[in-house]
Design a protein around this nucleic acid. Structure first.
Lengths: 124, 124
DNA sequence: CGACATTACATGCACGCGCATCTAATGTCC
DNA sequence: GGACATTAGATGCGCGTGCATGTAATGTCG
Protein backbone atom coordinates (compact mmCIF):
# COMPACT_ATOMS: atom_id res chain seq x y z
CA UNK A 1 0.00 0.00 0.00
CA UNK A 2 1.41 3.38 -1.01
CA UNK A 3 2.00 6.16 1.48
CA UNK A 4 -0.62 8.27 -0.22
CA UNK A 5 -3.26 5.57 -0.03
CA UNK A 6 -2.43 4.98 3.62
CA UNK A 7 -2.77 8.65 4.44
CA UNK A 8 -6.12 8.73 2.72
CA UNK A 9 -7.23 5.72 4.70
CA UNK A 10 -6.19 7.31 7.98
CA UNK A 11 -7.84 10.56 7.02
CA UNK A 12 -11.03 8.73 6.18
CA UNK A 13 -10.97 7.11 9.60
CA UNK A 14 -10.45 10.45 11.33
CA UNK A 15 -13.35 11.94 9.42
CA UNK A 16 -15.54 9.00 10.33
CA UNK A 17 -14.51 9.35 13.96
CA UNK A 18 -15.12 13.09 14.04
CA UNK A 19 -18.47 12.78 12.32
CA UNK A 20 -19.62 10.01 14.61
CA UNK A 21 -18.48 11.81 17.74
CA UNK A 22 -20.20 15.03 16.76
CA UNK A 23 -23.52 13.37 15.99
CA UNK A 24 -23.49 10.97 18.92
CA UNK A 25 -22.56 13.47 21.60
CA UNK A 26 -25.11 15.97 20.32
CA UNK A 27 -27.78 13.27 20.23
CA UNK A 28 -26.85 12.18 23.73
CA UNK A 29 -27.04 15.72 25.02
CA UNK A 30 -30.25 16.83 23.33
CA UNK A 31 -32.18 13.61 23.88
CA UNK A 32 -31.16 13.64 27.52
CA UNK A 33 -32.19 17.22 28.20
CA UNK A 34 -35.43 17.09 26.21
CA UNK A 35 -36.63 13.56 26.93
CA UNK A 36 -34.47 12.06 29.64
CA UNK A 37 -33.14 9.22 27.52
CA UNK A 38 -29.75 8.47 26.00
CA UNK A 39 -28.92 7.91 22.35
CA UNK A 40 -28.66 4.15 22.79
CA UNK A 41 -31.96 4.06 24.63
CA UNK A 42 -33.50 5.86 21.68
CA UNK A 43 -32.11 3.40 19.16
CA UNK A 44 -33.57 0.55 21.18
CA UNK A 45 -36.97 2.24 21.39
CA UNK A 46 -36.91 2.93 17.66
CA UNK A 47 -36.15 -0.70 16.93
CA UNK A 48 -38.95 -1.85 19.21
CA UNK A 49 -41.42 0.70 17.90
CA UNK A 50 -40.85 -0.13 14.26
CA UNK A 51 -40.41 -3.90 14.33
CA UNK A 52 -43.52 -5.95 13.81
CA UNK A 53 -44.34 -7.58 17.12
CA UNK A 54 -42.06 -9.62 19.28
CA UNK A 55 -38.42 -8.76 19.52
CA UNK A 56 -35.80 -10.82 21.26
CA UNK A 57 -33.22 -9.26 23.48
CA UNK A 58 -30.60 -10.66 21.11
CA UNK A 59 -32.20 -8.84 18.16
CA UNK A 60 -31.47 -5.55 19.85
CA UNK A 61 -27.76 -6.26 19.96
CA UNK A 62 -27.45 -6.12 16.20
CA UNK A 63 -29.30 -2.82 16.08
CA UNK A 64 -27.62 -0.92 18.87
CA UNK A 65 -23.92 -1.64 18.79
CA UNK A 66 -23.42 -2.80 22.34
CA UNK A 67 -22.33 -5.98 24.06
CA UNK A 68 -24.84 -8.52 25.27
CA UNK A 69 -24.42 -7.43 28.88
CA UNK A 70 -24.83 -3.76 28.07
CA UNK A 71 -27.96 -4.54 26.09
CA UNK A 72 -29.36 -6.53 28.98
CA UNK A 73 -28.86 -3.60 31.32
CA UNK A 74 -30.24 -1.16 28.77
CA UNK A 75 -33.46 -3.15 28.60
CA UNK A 76 -33.51 -3.27 32.40
CA UNK A 77 -33.25 0.53 32.56
CA UNK A 78 -36.00 0.99 30.00
CA UNK A 79 -38.20 -1.46 31.87
CA UNK A 80 -37.58 0.37 35.12
CA UNK A 81 -38.83 3.55 33.49
CA UNK A 82 -41.88 1.78 32.16
CA UNK A 83 -40.94 2.22 28.52
CA UNK A 84 -40.66 -1.47 27.67
CA UNK A 85 -41.77 -4.78 29.13
CA UNK A 86 -39.97 -8.06 29.37
CA UNK A 87 -42.07 -11.15 28.77
CA UNK A 88 -41.08 -14.77 29.02
CA UNK A 89 -40.90 -16.59 25.74
CA UNK A 90 -43.03 -19.67 26.15
CA UNK A 91 -41.48 -21.57 23.28
CA UNK A 92 -37.93 -21.16 24.50
CA UNK A 93 -38.00 -20.40 28.17
CA UNK A 94 -34.41 -19.18 28.17
CA UNK A 95 -35.28 -16.20 26.02
CA UNK A 96 -37.35 -13.11 26.66
CA UNK A 97 -39.44 -10.93 24.41
CA UNK A 98 -39.05 -7.20 24.75
CA UNK A 99 -42.08 -5.15 23.83
CA UNK A 100 -42.55 -1.42 23.87
CA UNK A 101 -45.28 0.01 26.11
CA UNK A 102 -47.66 2.82 25.24
CA UNK A 103 -45.56 5.17 27.34
CA UNK A 104 -42.52 3.97 25.47
CA UNK A 105 -44.16 4.59 22.13
CA UNK A 106 -45.11 8.11 23.18
CA UNK A 107 -41.59 8.77 24.40
CA UNK A 108 -40.23 7.45 21.12
CA UNK A 109 -42.48 9.61 18.94
CA UNK A 110 -41.57 12.71 20.91
CA UNK A 111 -37.86 11.95 20.95
CA UNK A 112 -37.94 11.10 17.25
CA UNK A 113 -38.47 14.77 16.46
CA UNK A 114 -35.37 15.76 18.39
CA UNK A 115 -33.41 12.88 16.90
CA UNK A 116 -34.20 13.88 13.32
CA UNK A 117 -33.46 17.53 14.06
CA UNK A 118 -29.99 16.64 15.27
CA UNK A 119 -29.33 14.46 12.24
CA UNK A 120 -30.38 17.28 9.93
CA UNK A 121 -28.22 19.77 11.83
CA UNK A 122 -25.07 17.76 12.30
CA UNK A 123 -25.05 14.99 9.74
CA UNK A 124 -25.74 17.20 6.74
CA UNK B 1 -38.34 17.35 4.73
CA UNK B 2 -39.88 14.47 2.83
CA UNK B 3 -40.29 11.02 4.30
CA UNK B 4 -37.87 9.63 1.77
CA UNK B 5 -35.19 12.16 2.59
CA UNK B 6 -35.66 11.51 6.29
CA UNK B 7 -35.31 7.78 5.83
CA UNK B 8 -32.13 8.32 3.87
CA UNK B 9 -30.78 10.53 6.63
CA UNK B 10 -31.54 7.94 9.29
CA UNK B 11 -30.04 5.20 7.17
CA UNK B 12 -26.91 7.26 6.68
CA UNK B 13 -26.63 7.66 10.44
CA UNK B 14 -27.03 3.94 11.01
CA UNK B 15 -24.35 3.19 8.46
CA UNK B 16 -22.04 5.71 10.09
CA UNK B 17 -22.74 4.17 13.48
CA UNK B 18 -22.18 0.63 12.27
CA UNK B 19 -19.00 1.54 10.44
CA UNK B 20 -17.60 3.43 13.40
CA UNK B 21 -18.47 0.68 15.88
CA UNK B 22 -16.90 -2.02 13.73
CA UNK B 23 -13.64 -0.14 13.26
CA UNK B 24 -13.36 1.16 16.79
CA UNK B 25 -14.08 -2.08 18.58
CA UNK B 26 -11.69 -3.99 16.33
CA UNK B 27 -9.00 -1.39 16.89
CA UNK B 28 -9.59 -1.49 20.62
CA UNK B 29 -9.33 -5.26 20.66
CA UNK B 30 -6.31 -5.71 18.40
CA UNK B 31 -4.29 -2.82 19.81
CA UNK B 32 -4.96 -4.05 23.31
CA UNK B 33 -3.93 -7.63 22.69
CA UNK B 34 -0.89 -6.81 20.55
CA UNK B 35 0.43 -3.70 22.27
CA UNK B 36 -1.46 -3.19 25.50
CA UNK B 37 -2.91 0.17 24.56
CA UNK B 38 -6.43 1.33 23.69
CA UNK B 39 -7.59 3.03 20.52
CA UNK B 40 -7.75 6.43 22.20
CA UNK B 41 -4.28 5.98 23.64
CA UNK B 42 -3.05 5.25 20.13
CA UNK B 43 -4.64 8.37 18.69
CA UNK B 44 -2.95 10.43 21.39
CA UNK B 45 0.43 8.82 20.72
CA UNK B 46 0.01 9.40 17.00
CA UNK B 47 -0.76 13.04 17.56
CA UNK B 48 2.25 13.44 19.82
CA UNK B 49 4.56 11.49 17.54
CA UNK B 50 3.66 13.48 14.45
CA UNK B 51 3.33 16.99 15.81
CA UNK B 52 6.41 19.14 15.75
CA UNK B 53 7.55 19.50 19.34
CA UNK B 54 5.49 20.79 22.18
CA UNK B 55 1.86 19.85 22.43
CA UNK B 56 -0.55 21.18 25.00
CA UNK B 57 -2.96 18.95 26.79
CA UNK B 58 -5.75 20.99 25.26
CA UNK B 59 -4.46 20.27 21.76
CA UNK B 60 -5.09 16.60 22.32
CA UNK B 61 -8.77 17.17 22.99
CA UNK B 62 -9.42 18.26 19.44
CA UNK B 63 -7.63 15.22 18.08
CA UNK B 64 -9.07 12.49 20.24
CA UNK B 65 -12.73 13.11 20.74
CA UNK B 66 -12.89 13.04 24.50
CA UNK B 67 -13.79 15.46 27.25
CA UNK B 68 -11.15 17.52 29.01
CA UNK B 69 -11.25 15.31 32.08
CA UNK B 70 -10.97 12.10 30.09
CA UNK B 71 -8.03 13.55 28.19
CA UNK B 72 -6.33 14.51 31.43
CA UNK B 73 -6.65 10.96 32.73
CA UNK B 74 -5.56 9.52 29.40
CA UNK B 75 -2.33 11.50 29.59
CA UNK B 76 -1.91 10.38 33.19
CA UNK B 77 -2.20 6.75 32.14
CA UNK B 78 0.28 7.19 29.31
CA UNK B 79 2.69 8.92 31.67
CA UNK B 80 2.35 6.12 34.20
CA UNK B 81 3.38 3.67 31.50
CA UNK B 82 6.34 5.83 30.54
CA UNK B 83 5.05 6.58 27.05
CA UNK B 84 4.73 10.34 27.51
CA UNK B 85 6.04 13.00 29.84
CA UNK B 86 4.31 15.99 31.34
CA UNK B 87 6.40 19.12 31.60
CA UNK B 88 5.48 22.44 33.13
CA UNK B 89 5.03 25.23 30.65
CA UNK B 90 7.25 28.03 31.91
CA UNK B 91 5.47 30.74 29.97
CA UNK B 92 2.02 29.90 31.27
CA UNK B 93 2.43 27.94 34.46
CA UNK B 94 -1.16 26.74 34.37
CA UNK B 95 -0.52 24.68 31.26
CA UNK B 96 1.53 21.59 30.67
CA UNK B 97 3.37 20.31 27.66
CA UNK B 98 2.96 16.69 26.79
CA UNK B 99 5.86 15.09 24.96
CA UNK B 100 6.28 11.56 23.74
CA UNK B 101 9.17 9.53 25.13
CA UNK B 102 11.43 7.19 23.17
CA UNK B 103 9.49 4.25 24.57
CA UNK B 104 6.30 5.97 23.49
CA UNK B 105 7.61 6.47 19.99
CA UNK B 106 8.60 2.84 19.73
CA UNK B 107 5.21 1.75 20.98
CA UNK B 108 3.57 4.04 18.46
CA UNK B 109 5.56 2.75 15.51
CA UNK B 110 4.78 -0.85 16.43
CA UNK B 111 1.11 -0.19 17.06
CA UNK B 112 0.87 1.82 13.85
CA UNK B 113 1.27 -1.38 11.85
CA UNK B 114 -1.66 -3.00 13.64
CA UNK B 115 -3.69 0.17 13.37
CA UNK B 116 -3.26 0.41 9.60
CA UNK B 117 -3.98 -3.28 9.17
CA UNK B 118 -7.31 -2.90 10.92
CA UNK B 119 -8.21 0.14 8.84
CA UNK B 120 -7.43 -1.76 5.66
CA UNK B 121 -9.43 -4.76 6.84
CA UNK B 122 -12.50 -3.05 8.21
CA UNK B 123 -12.73 0.39 6.71
CA UNK B 124 -12.33 -0.69 3.09
C1' DC C 1 -2.34 47.49 43.26
C1' DG C 2 -6.59 44.72 44.22
C1' DA C 3 -10.98 42.40 43.28
C1' DC C 4 -13.13 39.47 40.02
C1' DA C 5 -13.46 36.75 35.85
C1' DT C 6 -11.21 33.41 33.10
C1' DT C 7 -8.25 29.70 31.78
C1' DA C 8 -5.62 25.10 32.20
C1' DC C 9 -5.65 21.15 34.18
C1' DA C 10 -6.81 17.73 38.10
C1' DT C 11 -10.14 15.11 40.73
C1' DG C 12 -14.52 13.24 43.35
C1' DC C 13 -18.42 11.05 41.85
C1' DA C 14 -22.00 8.46 39.57
C1' DC C 15 -22.79 5.72 35.75
C1' DG C 16 -22.51 2.88 31.53
C1' DC C 17 -19.43 -0.30 29.35
C1' DG C 18 -17.07 -4.92 28.20
C1' DC C 19 -15.29 -9.17 30.10
C1' DA C 20 -15.79 -13.09 32.59
C1' DT C 21 -18.86 -15.83 34.85
C1' DC C 22 -23.28 -17.62 36.57
C1' DT C 23 -27.94 -19.68 36.08
C1' DA C 24 -31.39 -21.93 33.75
C1' DA C 25 -33.23 -23.97 29.61
C1' DT C 26 -32.42 -26.42 25.38
C1' DG C 27 -29.97 -29.37 21.99
C1' DT C 28 -27.04 -33.51 20.98
C1' DC C 29 -25.32 -38.05 21.04
C1' DC C 30 -24.75 -42.56 22.86
C1' DG D 1 -33.15 -41.32 29.41
C1' DG D 2 -28.63 -39.40 31.10
C1' DA D 3 -24.18 -36.89 30.50
C1' DC D 4 -22.25 -33.02 28.23
C1' DA D 5 -22.14 -29.04 25.23
C1' DT D 6 -24.57 -24.97 23.86
C1' DT D 7 -27.52 -21.01 24.17
C1' DA D 8 -30.18 -16.81 26.26
C1' DG D 9 -29.91 -13.70 29.35
C1' DA D 10 -28.37 -11.72 34.15
C1' DT D 11 -24.77 -10.07 37.12
C1' DG D 12 -20.10 -9.12 39.82
C1' DC D 13 -16.26 -6.52 38.80
C1' DG D 14 -12.87 -3.23 37.23
C1' DC D 15 -12.33 0.57 34.37
C1' DG D 16 -12.96 4.67 31.39
C1' DT D 17 -16.17 8.49 30.73
C1' DG D 18 -18.63 13.02 31.37
C1' DC D 19 -20.20 16.37 34.68
C1' DA D 20 -19.42 19.28 38.27
C1' DT D 21 -16.13 21.20 40.96
C1' DG D 22 -11.53 22.27 42.92
C1' DT D 23 -6.93 24.48 42.55
C1' DA D 24 -3.67 27.40 40.86
C1' DA D 25 -2.10 30.73 37.48
C1' DT D 26 -3.26 34.46 34.39
C1' DG D 27 -6.00 38.28 32.32
C1' DT D 28 -8.92 42.48 33.02
C1' DC D 29 -10.50 46.68 34.66
C1' DG D 30 -11.21 50.38 37.94
Amino acid sequence: MSDVAEKELVQEWHELLARYSAVFSTLECRLQESHGIGANEFEALERLATCDFKCRSADLISTIHLSQSATSRLVARLEKEGLVERALCEVDRRGIFVTITDAGREKYLAAKQTHREVLREILR
